[in-house]
Design a protein around this nucleic acid. Structure first.
Length: 297
DNA sequence: AATTCGTGGCT
DNA sequence: TAGCCAAGAAT
């Protein structure tokens, strides 16, 4: 039952003070971003680094300042504007989320965690992040950065488990400050600490505000033991082929002929499987005459 | 619970 | 150079 009941010295103040001084000035953190800006950023930041998100985020918010603006356009436009951020199904889901917000929530990003969670592409993390960052609510925001910070500082191990565990959620809730605004600040601060200081490969403990209280350091910074996390091979996979196919469609003005798609990959079986996958995902729309385009609906 | 799903910079 | 890794979600 008791997983990590070790009384944790107050980490809140040093981490939040550090955040006050070192937080990056990111556009989705500015007040004018609004809940929609926060939501767009969260979708884009799912598995994509900040540096690559920044320019695309600016384009999206300029073009679609409100959810209804995006919902009014074909999903294929979202896929096109997604550019090379990767995992383009996120663009489709963000478009679908915008449509749901327009139709079910009066065009306003919902404040309620459960309503956020019900939106396409919004999972546990993103729902908590939007509720916390956009609306200042008190939620345990458990992303890869926070999980790593807690794993080290509190649990004393180099890396968190592969998948988020009940123990991690319990720990995150236990560490959450009582005050709603402080909890929201804490969420952003722990995430930033993981992103800038307590990084995966080479943490910069010299700049860490809680290094003196870090359980992992106290234990001598032991290396991760256990099965290595599965690497993500890419070359030669269906994902690479999908990427090449979709790039052709993104860069085309209208529909493209089958031959243009065939040119991106030599092996026909894998090529066909990848294209089928894109179609069944709704990322590509086949036309009766053997042409293909980004989806209009 | 284990897989699938892009892309590119960094070491 | 060849992995490793990046504010996950859906199935």
């Amino acid at each position: 039952m008791t997983v990590t009941e070790t009384p944790v010295p107050p980490l809140h103040d040093p981490v939040i003070d550090w955040f006050d001084e070192h937080a990056r000035d990111l556009p989705w953190r500015r007040p004018e971003a609004g809940a929609w800006g926060v939501m767009v950023s969260e979708f884009m930041l799912q598995q994509t680094p900040v540096a690559r998100v920044l320019p695309v985020y600016e384009q999206w918010l300029a073009r679609w300042p409100h959810p209804a603006d995006l919902a009014a356009e074909p999903p294929g436009e979202a896929v096109r504007a997604w550019g090379r951020l990767g995992y383009p199904r996120r663009a489709l889901r963000l478009h679908a989320a915008a449509s749901a917000i327009a139709e079910l929530h009066g065009g306003e990003v919902p404040r309620d965690h459960a309503q956020l969670l019900a939106l396409p592409g919004v999972g546990e993390y993103t729902a908590a992040a939007v509720a916390s960052f956009a609306y200042g609510q008190r939620h345990a925001v458990l992303d890869t950065n926070v999980r790593r910070v807690f794993a080290r500082a509190v649990s004393g191990v180099q890396y968190p488990p592969n998948a988020t565990t009940a123990a991690e959620r319990k720990l995150a809730r236990a560490l959450l400050p009582d005050s709603e605004p402080v909890a929201a600040r804490w969420a952003a601060a722990t995430m930033e600490l993981g992103a800038l200081v307590c990084t995966a490969r080479t943490p910069v403990c010299a700049r860490c505000p809680i290094a003196a209280r870090c359980a992992w350091r106290a234990a001598g910074a032991p290396a991760h033991d256990g099965p290595p996390r599965r690497g993500q091979t890419y070359a030669g996979t269906d994902r690479q082929v999908r990427g090449k196919l979709l790039a052709v469609l993104r860069d085309a003005v209208g529909a493209v002929p089958q031959a243009a798609l065939d040119a991106v990959w030599e092996e026909p079986v894998q090529r066909a499987r990848a294209l089928d996958g894109l179609v069944s995902d709704g990322l590509v729309e086949p036309l009766p005459d053997g042409m293909y385009r980004l989806p209009l609906a």
